[in-house]
Design a binder for these strands. Structure first.
Length: 626
DNA sequence: ACGGCTTGAACG
DNA sequence: TCGTTCAAG
């Protein structure tokens, strides 16, 4: 449900920019023959010609609608060009459109705070830019106002709208308007310039709404599509909302909007004005009630977030009716495909944006034959995310089995999966720069006597050790197979009697082990991008690392990732470490500032309740759970 | 047999 | 926190 946010006092200038039939434009740019001809993009699906997911404006004239099937579209518009979404791994692949969206964001984010709202929409907070313009070169001083700005539609201008560019020019330059209207005029010009740039640099057209808050900007952006912009001066708001059907408002397109209509007889936003705030709160609760009261008055405090990238990645596929998956092996096949795509996507997110995803989630829809509760839903399951395609595949399959167990109550019943999806969420920036572990290690390597590293643990070695043991036990039950305990506890020279993992102890001299090996050894479990790109690692001084990591099987069910970056050696940019595969007691030996950094990387679900100052890392690992 | 595929947000 | 549900496009 919607929630009202506190409003800022100062007037803001907010824009909502929406690409016109975006997928179609992307395809038209790819194949210029499609320009100017009726076009739609269909998702591959041999069934009835596929489903339309975007319809160009030429085709809309024929009544072609999104959510028609390809066959219907052909009937409505025989000349329509139907372009298929690329298919990869047996499913629709939207990456083409995602990267086209990024091109646009790159431009739109240059003039102020920018929030990527979807693959083809952004919100902009242009308040500061508008203020600057007002100070430095207000519209009335401008010798030339951009043509595109003059084409704006200004709501409430004269009696009926859009008398022409001269009226718009007057509005933009109005010398005796109030402060917020002047800011809005500046915003209008800035948005016009941005849209022109987008067209020049990407060949994509877009439409925009410019207003004093997100809600109104969003409301305005589709009013004059395609390739135009609409401005909502504060003075025009009451009239605009008075006759606006409630369903047009974002958040009121669903059940809440229906309830307003059916239960209250509220058909326009204006109709809401008759209800007191108290009354709306009584009807819909404090949050939604307050929100409703405010939006009826055009008040919305939602801020534009400064975020250019998505908060999560997901991919899924449906298996309708007859295609339902009925064996774990077919589920595994498809899950592998989905995980492959997901892995690729989080990997490029890491490479390009230096972000790591912390949580892996599996969703499914399923039916089961008979039983008392045939309506029960397949439960979603999640776990810490480990990088590496095969790890993701393993973990996802495990989550599926957990979910299936729940779903069937561990009974033996027929079942079918009608949709599968995996997601990567809780994405965080990699702590960058100053205090990376690798930097510490490199310094160590060059200027360190091994005593630093090999000193006894400051804290409580016993505690730490027991944690390790617990984690082993835990791991075992989680995986149910192939967890080499040796590789896990391995030698931690200080905490305790090392398990003699033959291969390892030979590899490094003890001195080396102390100087660098001890720590590196625990950085096991995976180079970021499997096989292919890890080659970079081999070359350097850390050459031991490769063998170590490949020999050390994946271990833990808990995984937080760490990316080591290093400028001047050949270590892969994206060397990934599943952090919780590190022996916590080893990390406790690191300088406190690095420990602090590492604490931030530990998955929330694994953090233990300790606010104590100077707590060791070991304390931050929660004990085993089922 | 269905609109599919993605995202984000709020709630309990 | 995790899992569910809703909404949008």
């Amino acid at each position: 449900m919607p929630v009202a946010r506190p409003e800022s006092q100062e007037p803001r200038v907010i824009a909502h920019v929406d690409m016109d039939c975006f997928y179609v434009q992307v395809e038209q740019r790819r194949n210029p023959d499609l320009r100017g001809v009726p076009t739609a993009v269909v998702q591959y699906n041999s069934w009835k010609g596929g489903g339309l997911i975007a319809v160009g404006y030429e085709a809309r004239k024929f009544g072609v609608k999104r959510s028609m099937r390809g066959d219907e579209a052909k009937r409505a518009c025989p000349d329509i060009q139907l372009v298929q979404v690329p298919v990869a791994r047996g499913k629709a692949d939207l990456n083409l459109y995602r990267s086209a969206g990024s091109e646009v964001v790159a431009i739109l984010s240059t003039k102020g705070k920018c929030e990527r709202a979807s693959i083809d929409e952004v919100y902009l907070d242009l308040t500061d830019a508008a203020k600057s313009m007002l100070l430095e070169s207000p519209p009335e001083m401008l010798d030339s106002i951009p043509e595109e700005a003059l084409k704006s539609h200004v709501l409430g201008l004269s009696s009926d709208e859009n008398k022409g560019e001269e009226d718009v020019r007057k509005w933009l330059c109005q010398p005796n308007a109030d402060y917020q209207a002047k800011l809005l005029a500046c915003g209008t010009i800035i948005v016009a310039e941005l849209r022109v740039r987008v067209l020049q640099e990407t060949k994509f057209t877009c439409s925009a709404g410019i207003a004093h808050n997100k809600m109104l900007a969003k409301l305005a952006s589709p009013m004059h599509k395609p390739a135009q912009q609409t401005v909502v001066p504060a003075t025009s708001v009451p009239d605009l909302l008075a006759s606006l059907p409630v369903k047009k408002m974002k958040q009121l397109g669903g059940k809440l909007g229906s309830s307003l209509q059916d239960d209250l007889g509220v058909n326009t936003v204006g109709d809401l004005l008759k209800f007191s705030e108290q009354k709306l709160q009584d009807l819909y609760g404090i949050n939604t009630g307050t929100w409703l009261w405010k939006i009826a008055r055009g008040i919305s405090g939602d801020e534009v977030e400064d975020r250019l990238l998505p908060k999560s990645h997901g991919c899924g596929k449906t298996f309708p009716g007859p295609m339902a998956l009925k064996t774990t092996s077919s589920v595994k096949q498809w899950l592998n495909q989905l995980c492959e795509e997901l892995s690729e996507r989080i990997q490029s997110d890491l490479d390009q944006n230096k972000r790591v995803a912390q949580t892996l989630t599996l969703h499914a829809r399923a039916f089961k034959e008979d039983e008392v509760d045939p309506l029960k839903k397949f439960p979603s399951k999640s776990c810490p995310l480990r990088y590496g395609t095969s790890k993701i595949q393993e973990d996802a399959m495990h989550l599926f089995e957990l979910g299936l167990g729940d779903f069937l109550n561990s009974k033996n019943l027929g079942w079918g999966i009608t949709s599968l999806a995996v997601g990567a969420s809780k994405i965080v920036d990699i702590p960058n720069g100053t205090t990376s572990i690798l930097k510490y290690l490199t310094e160590k390597r060059t200027s360190c006597n091994s005593s630093d590293c090999s000193d006894a643990l400051p804290g409580e070695p016993d505690h730490a050790t027991s944690l390790i043991c617990q984690k082993d036990a835990d791991t075992k039950s989680y995986k149910g197979h192939e967890v080499p305990l040796e590789s896990k506890v391995e030698e931690n020279p200080k905490t305790k009697a090392p398990r003699e993992s033959a291969s390892d102890s030979k590899r490094l001299s003890d001195r080396d082990a102390n100087a660098k090996g001890t720590i590196l050894r625990y950085f096991s479990g995976g180079s970021s991008s499997n096989q292919s790109s890890t080659s970079k690692v081999e070359t350097t001084q850390i050459e031991e690392q490769e063998r170590i990591s490949s020999s050390t099987a994946s271990i833990s069910n808990s995984h937080q990732n760490l990316n080591l970056n290093q400028n001047n050696n050949a270590l892969s940019e994206n060397w990934i470490i599943n952090i919780e595969e590190i022996d916590p007691s080893v990390v406790d030996e690191l300088p406190l500032e690095i420990q602090r950094e590492i604490r931030g990387w530990i998955h929330p679900s694994k953090r233990i309740n300790t606010a104590k100052r100077g707590s060791t890392i070991a304390h931050y690992f929660s004990p085993a759970r089922k």
